[in-house]
Design a binder for these strands. Structure first.
Lengths: 127, 127
DNA sequence: GTACATTACATGCATCCGCATCTAATGCAA
DNA sequence: TTGCATTAGATGCGGATGCATGTAATGTAC
């Protein structure tokens, strides 16, 4: 049925708006981080090795240019380091600094708390 | 479980990004409409009577200021009309023009097609 | 090696968004 | 009535995004 998709889409839209708004406010006020910034830190924290910018781009839902700027901001804040890639000198590696890891760890509970609040009574996907 | 929320959130994030991107491109290319513009037209088309800006604001996931500007754009394009409210002269009514109704009708199939493509194999919410 | 296509990332630009604020109208209390 | 708080909507502003493009490195064909 056509209408079913519309209902699902509206639900996605509503949850996205609500969650994003809360994340932006909570992470911003309490940790000085934007939602995109946290997202990048979170992905970096989930990997041992350094990540290519390109690999990050696949995991975060940002355009290549937006990601480039988020990483630039994070570097200016001292939360990540950018390094040249040996094997392909066009590439750029990114990794967390100690402070980056600390800030991420501090912000994690806030992030999870927001998700818990929004999705507490959420319809859980079947599969 | 904490992690379950994260998985759901990532799914919302992915679907939102994918759908928004496709909607923006398809609606933009084929009908000269942005996703927000279509959203407003769609809500207006779903109601008989005129809507207050404030009522629209509750249905669309935009800030009051963003909605104000979307409606301004739509009016400049001749797709909606803004009219003063008799009972409360602070209020503003919005309604579709004939062209607005036509453009919405033309764009609807495109919109639904995108949703169908993205949510075709989507995990349907339980309740 | 030379020439051209492609890739990885950076950046100029236009657009859109949310927040804070402004204006005008309304409501309410004294 | 006057005076103040509240509300509806518009707007200035800063910031983030995506698209198109630029730059430099790599790959490929000849």
């Amino acid at each position: 049925m056509d209408e079913a998709f519309v209902v699902v889409w509206h639900d996605v839209l509503a949850k996205h708006a609500r969650t994003m708004c809360m994340l932006e406010r909570e992470l911003g006020d309490k940790h000085g981080l934007g939602a995109s910034e946290f997202e990048v830190l979170d992905r970096l924290a989930g990997h041992e090795r350094k990540l290519r910018l390109q690999e990050l781009c696949d995991e975060v839902h940002l355009s290549q240019s937006a990601l480039s700027r988020v990483v630039a901001r994070l570097e200016k804040s001292g939360l990540v380091l950018r390094g040249a890639c040996d094997v392909d000198r066009r590439g750029v590696f990114v990794c967390l600094t100690d402070e980056g890891r600390t800030r991420h760890a501090a912000a994690l509970p806030t992030h999870r708390a927001v998700l818990a609040e929004v999705f507490a009574d959420a319809p859980v996907p079947v599969a």
